[in-house]
């Protein structure tokens, strides 16, 4: 019962994040919304494990948290430098541009 209520609250929060991802005037609003959506997804997966009585789902949640983090950084890097391979950081910034 309380798992179901918490899942419902998570669903509403995910919906709001999706609305921001669709509306978001700038690219960064969208990235932020997707990152936040990912955080809620991690919690949702961990929750689903308890809801369906299969707590092994926490492994998947852990993995998703890692992928969400790396994914956000990758997207930001991609839109900043136009490729995944160019070096980041302040020192190299001036060279390519």
């Amino acid at each position: 019962m309380m798992f179901a209520a918490a899942t419902a609250a998570l669903c509403v929060a995910m919906l709001l994040a999706l609305v921001r991802a669709l509306l978001g005037p700038t690219l960064f609003d969208r990235v932020l919304a997707v990152n936040s959506f990912g955080t809620k997804t991690v919690l949702m997966i961990a929750m689903l494990g308890f809801l369906t009585d299969r707590p092994d789902f926490t492994d998947i949640a852990l993995l998703y948290a890692l992928i969400n983090f790396v994914g956000t950084l990758a997207v930001l890097k991609f839109f900043r430098y136009g490729s995944f391979a160019r070096p980041g950081g302040r020192a190299q910034q001036g060279e390519g541009e």
């Binding site: 309380m2 798992f3 209520a5 918490a6 609250a9 998570l10 509403v12 929060a13 995910m14 709001l16 994040a17 609305v19 921001r20 932020l32 919304a33 936040s36 809620k40 919690l43």
Partner: peptide, 17 residues
Amino acid sequence: LLAAGSFFILVGAIGLI
């Protein structure tokens, strides 16, 4: 704890909007 957590998650989402 779950209810309080859900509340703060909702607050964060409302803030996002």
